[in-house]
């Protein structure tokens, strides 16, 4: 498995990129958190950094948002150098941090108002824009409530609204749905998608939720130990894993069925053990009726059929040799609460 994890092919150089990184590295003492990253992100792209906690995703975000300085290498955001042109970088970006960064003593509107002033927006401009972004995340009715009384999901939505308030070119979302329930996560996904597709904002998000990256991102970079080990669209990444798998449980007529199946040209491989048959197939969904028909004709009794499509989880497993759920600190949301901010 190691032969593929060592080096990833050189990334394509994108002209006029929203973000470009060359040899970007961050060391904390002995530990290399981010190791020689070369990566270009297109304007208008919804890009995902996928990896376990500690893979280096948040460190990249912190460097790109000027919160910490790179040890070596270079990164440009909207054409500005993150180490030398901090102010220009800061004016070009919006950031939603992993942990809440709101003032609970202030209302939602006051938090947005504060933000607008910090970005030099005048009063009438702020007023109009606050109404707009509140509407975007459905928080207009909660605008006058102090944020200490907001739920986790509401805080996150307000922060997304705030990140957009000053019309940034690039929006950074660090683990946007961490610690949120499934329903709220769906809502947040919808908001993120709308912002990208309708407003054209370039978005970079980090996540360790495979389905989040799969659902949202145009392209995904899988990170492991400070390096990018895979980079492509979710579809292409999943194609690398290969075809889909159909698993049949049989009680009778297995051998006869096997013979018939072996004659189908669209079946790429067959594995049988005990009463189970595993088929590697493309477009598996549309092949199942055919299989059932043949089984019936040959009096084979199938007790269950299951279909497994490759997921980003499989891709992650292939490239890192581990399941993301096996890794410490990326399990339950309780563990996430306890390890927050270390990713």
């Amino acid at each position: 498995m190691n032969d593929i994890t060592d080096e990833v092919k050189p990334t394509e150089v994108i002209k006029d990129a929203a973000i470009s990184m060359r040899g970007l590295t961050k060391e904390f003492g002995e530990m290399i958190a981010v190791n020689q990253i070369d990566l270009d992100i297109k304007k208008g792209e919804l890009f995902g950094l996928l990896g376990a906690n500690g893979a280096g995703k948040s460190t990249i975000i912190k460097m790109l948002t000027t919160m910490i300085t790179p040890t070596s290498g270079e990164a440009r955001v909207w054409g500005y150098d993150v180490a030398k042109e901090r102010k220009e970088v800061r004016s070009s970006i919006g950031v939603v941090f992993q942990d809440p960064a709101v003032d609970g003593m202030l209302t939602g509107r006051e938090n947005l108002d504060f933000h607008g002033r910090m970005y030099g927006m005048d009063a009438s401009c702020r007023k109009a824009r606050i109404a707009e972004v509140l509407d975007l995340v459905d928080l207009t009715e909660k605008a006058e409530v102090r944020m200490q009384d907001y739920s986790g999901g509401m805080k996150r939505r307000l922060e997304i609204a705030r990140g957009l308030m000053h019309y940034p070119h690039v929006l950074f979302l660090d683990e946007p749905t961490i610690g949120l329930d499934a329903q709220t996560r769906r809502y947040i996904w919808q908001y993120i998608r709308n912002m990208n597709k309708e407003l054209g904002v370039t978005i970079i998000l980090t996540t360790h939720y495979m389905e989040e990256a799969d659902f949202l991102c145009d392209r995904v970079a899988i990170m492991d130990n400070g390096k990018i080990v895979a980079l492509d669209t979710p579809e292409h990444l999943k194609d690398l894993i290969g075809s889909e798998t159909i698993t049949l449980e049989t009680v009778e007529g297995k051998d006869a069925l096997m013979q018939i199946l072996q004659s189908f040209p669209w079946i790429k491989s067959i594995n049988a053990s005990n009463g189970t048959i595993e088929l590697q197939v493309d477009h598996a969904q549309s092949r199942i009726p055919e299989i059932m028909l043949e089984a019936n004709r040959n009096s084979a009794v199938i007790t269950s059929v299951s279909l497994h499509k490759p997921t980003l989880e499989d891709v992650f497993l292939k490239y890192t040799g581990r399941k993301i759920r096996d890794l410490p600190g990326s399990g339950s949301s309780m563990a996430n609460m306890m390890f927050r901010g270390r990713g």
Binding site: M67, R90, F97, A101, H115, M118
Partner: peptide
């Protein structure tokens, strides 16, 4: 402690 420092530090204010 409450994270708000980040909101201030990432803004383009000197």
């Amino acid at each position: 402690e409450f994270g708000f420092l980040k909101e201030i530090m990432v803004s383009p204010v000197s």
